[in-house]
């Protein structure tokens, strides 16, 4: 039950409360560039969600098994050369950025080839966005969050498992899709408006995005309220522990 509550709250958090675009400011470039039409926006959103999930899977696996301090594979390999105590202290987190970007670039390439072969109609609708996603901040950002939840926790038992990591990534992509589609709808309406010349294009998009961000700020506090509803026992024990 506790696990399900966690998953729901992570999903809600990633999609709405801490929306990747409107709260964390990642993925702004495609947000402004591809949000002209709803069908293009949806295509971009699906592509991002797809790639972000695969990238999260890869980065969680590599971090947990190779990069984290005391990770199984590194410990085993180092065990051949040094004593077991020293092997347990091997810490390869310095490689994290390089490894993540490498994994993202390769997985994007792989996904593009796979989709082109087996789903040609899908490829025609969003295949053109796939190379653009390699430099999308949102993918790397999801990987970094997962990294901080595995390596940055004080208690190793609290390190995120694959389910939580995938939920964060997938629903982060869903949040990105929601934001970019709403923006596309608004921009389609703006086509007919008389916008002053200096603000046309990116200027008015950013101003509309600020109003959208303000609207999404209305979601703050939903997760703590929901936590009280879904897991009142845990909240009570935490409060009594503070007292």
């Amino acid at each position: 039950m506790h696990y399900l509550t966690d998953i729901i709250l992570i999903a809600l958090g990633a999609a709405l409360i801490n929306n990747f675009v409107l709260y964390y400011f990642v993925g702004i470039c495609p947000f402004i560039g591809v949000s002209r039409r709803i069908d293009m926006a949806l295509g971009m959103g699906f592509a991002v969600t797809f790639v972000i999930s695969i990238a999260a899977l890869l980065s969680w696996t590599i971090t947990t098994f190779i990069l984290a301090p005391g990770a199984p594979v590194s410990k085993w390999v180092a065990g051949f050369f040094v004593s077991p105590e020293a092997a347990a202290q091997v810490d390869l987190t310095i490689l994290s950025y390089v490894v993540y970007i490498f994994a993202i670039a390769s997985s994007v390439q792989f996904v593009e080839m796979y989709v082109r072969k087996f789903y040609p109609s899908l490829y025609r609708s969003f295949g053109v966005f796939l190379p653009l996603i390699t430099t999308n901040c949102a993918i790397l950002f999801a990987c970094l969050i997962i990294f901080s939840r595995i390596v940055g926790v004080d208690n190793p038992a609290d390190a995120w498992d694959i389910g939580r990591a995938l939920t964060l990534a997938a629903f982060g992509g869903v949040g990105f899709t929601i934001a970019i589609t709403i923006m596309a709808g608004i921009r389609e309406e703006l086509e007919l408006c008389d916008i002053p010349k200096p603000l046309r294009g990116a200027g008015i998009t950013l101003i509309v995005a600020s109003v959208l961000a303000m609207a999404f700020m209305g979601f703050t506090g939903v997760d703590s309220g929901l936590r009280k509803v879904l897991a009142p026992a845990a909240v009570e024990s935490a409060q009594s522990a503070e007292k």
Binding site: L22, F25, L206, S210, A213, M214, M217
Partner: peptide, 8 residues
């Protein structure tokens, strides 16, 4: 200081 201000 919040996100809306940044965009605006």
């Amino acid at each position: 200081i919040l996100p809306p201000g940044a965009f605006m």
